[in-house]
């Protein structure tokens, strides 16, 4: 397979795809980069191609920037924690033989098929609505005053909605990992005197480390750009304005493309920092 001739042939064959992919990713990135150094406000007819780092300075120095960074990190971190923890537990549960296994597995995966906008609308109007929402009925059933989710705990509400959406993904990946665990290892640990919790801690969890890394990384990338859920529910008010949402507001609400582009570039850099940081942490766990 890996002779020199076949390697260079392979490179040649892959070239078109690589070039296309690079162009696909580079063109928008370069345009954004270009605009981020320009004073570009189309509705007012302002276009000045080079204003240096002014946009970046304005974006970073505004008070909403650091709030947005904190909100983003809290939101992504909380969602990761919830989906990975519940994902591991659900995967272990689904791995057990039980009645109606096939149906249960499909039900667990179902939320993943619901579009973000739709699910946010459903949660907002049918689950979390303080008057008619399912949750408010539950609260009333137990004699409590219904909780006005999106007004009183907007950040928590969005975290719950997005976690609900991403839990299936985490569960699915973790389930395949759980299924690939050699049963004899667990039996050996059982004979070696490890009770269930220790078997989980010493055998199952290390085995899942790789899958957890993958779930964390992929989810982080997608979660950094959550938009629809915020747009539909709180419109970025009450401390739910993430970096992505801030960029959107700068571009559309204040019609400042240059400022928005600078924000976009900052978001890309931050996302990369977060990703490298995560890979380090989890990568270390993998090798330990």
């Amino acid at each position: 397979m890996a002779t020199k001739a076949s390697q260079s042939a392979a490179r040649l064959m892959m070239a078109p795809a690589v070039v296309l992919l690079l162009g696909w990713m580079l063109v928008p990135l370069i345009t954004t980069l270009y605009f981020s150094f320009a004073d570009f406000r189309p509705l007012r007819g302002v276009f000045e191609p080079w204003i240096g780092f002014d946009n970046y300075e304005r974006f970073v120095s505004s008070s909403s920037f650091w709030d947005a960074v904190t909100t983003t990190l809290v939101m992504v971190g909380a969602i990761l924690a919830i989906t990975v923890t519940l994902g591991v537990l659900l995967a272990l549960l689904l791995d057990k033989p039980m009645f109606g296994q096939g149906v249960v597995r499909i039900l667990v995966i179902a939320p993943f098929f619901v579009m973000p906008t739709v699910s946010a609308l459903v949660w907002k109007n049918m689950m979390m609505d303080p008057v008619n929402g399912v949750l408010s009925h539950v609260w009333r059933f137990f004699g409590a005053t219904p909780h006005d989710w999106l007004v009183e705990t907007p950040l928590l509400s969005i975290i719950l909605i997005v976690s609900w959406q991403w839990l299936p993904f985490a569960t699915l990946i973790l389930l395949t990992a759980v299924q690939s665990l050699d049963g004899e290892q667990l039996e050996a640990a059982e004979m070696d005197g490890a009770p269930p919790l220790k078997r989980f801690w010493f055998i199952i969890l290390p085995h899942l480390a790789r899958a957890i890394t993958i779930v964390t990384l992929i989810q982080t990338i997608f979660l950094l750009s959550i938009f629809a859920e915020i747009f539909v529910t709180t419109q970025g008010s009450f401390g739910t304005r993430t970096l992505t949402y801030l960029v959107y507001q700068r571009v559309l609400e204040s019609q400042n493309v240059g400022l928005g582009s600078a924000g976009g570039i900052i978001a890309v850099i931050l996302a990369n920092i977060v990703a490298i940081f995560l890979m380090r942490i989890v990568g270390k766990n993998l090798d330990a």
Partner: peptide
């Protein structure tokens, strides 16, 4: 104590 056919060592 049991020795398994697949050895069942803990890989990590």
């Amino acid at each position: 104590a049991m020795v398994f056919q697949s050895y069942a060592l803990y890989p990590h």
